[in-house]
Amino acid sequence: MIEVSEAGLLRRRSVVPALLAERGDMLVVAGLGAPAWDVTAAGDHDLTFPLWGAMGGAAVIGLGMAIARPDRRVLVLTGDGEMLMGVGSLATIAVQAPPNLSIVVLDNERYGETGGQRTHTGMGVDLVGMAIAAGIPQTMRINLPGEVEALRQAIHTSTGPLFAVVKIDPESLPLALPPRDGAVLSARFRGALLGPAAHLE
């Protein structure tokens, strides 16, 4: 059930579990800060790679994964501030054009972890427009509860790359922290994806 705030904006902790519903064997990368807390609140998973740093790198981590595993869907869930820091990567991703990669920006127009300062998307910058201009073939803008299920389906079926912005309420929510040792996160992810051979390479 997708919730809407008093301001009429989508609530992130209802959107993220809806996007991760029936995820199957999809690989998930979550950008640092609130998106990492959101995916954890939705249920920590061995095939989820939440970031505690590497700001600006989430989308390209997804690109490397999508190239390595063309047989899997790859979803990057990140924030507007994180995407803006690595916005040149939209050009890199458009050129590589992996059909199995989706990037979903949870856009609250704020740097939520640092005091709620406005980001560029709150001052007129249009990330979907930038993705289109870069040559990303599939784009979506999600503002209404009824649009979220179409995005979930597109993540699983579209011939991408797909880039979507979901406008969300800038609410501050209780933390839901994933493991923070990067060695644990990468080993569990590779073990779940590649089996015991992952640790014998």
Partner: peptide, 26 residues
């Protein structure tokens, strides 16, 4: 081999992180 031209070098570190998680060397 897949050549991946970057717009800036730090993208390469993220790319190869994703590649390794997916089972490829870069």
């Amino acid at each position: 081999m897949r050549l991946v031209p970057l717009t800036t070098e730090e993208e390469g570190i993220a790319l190869l992180g994703g590649a390794w998680l997916g089972g490829q060397r870069g």
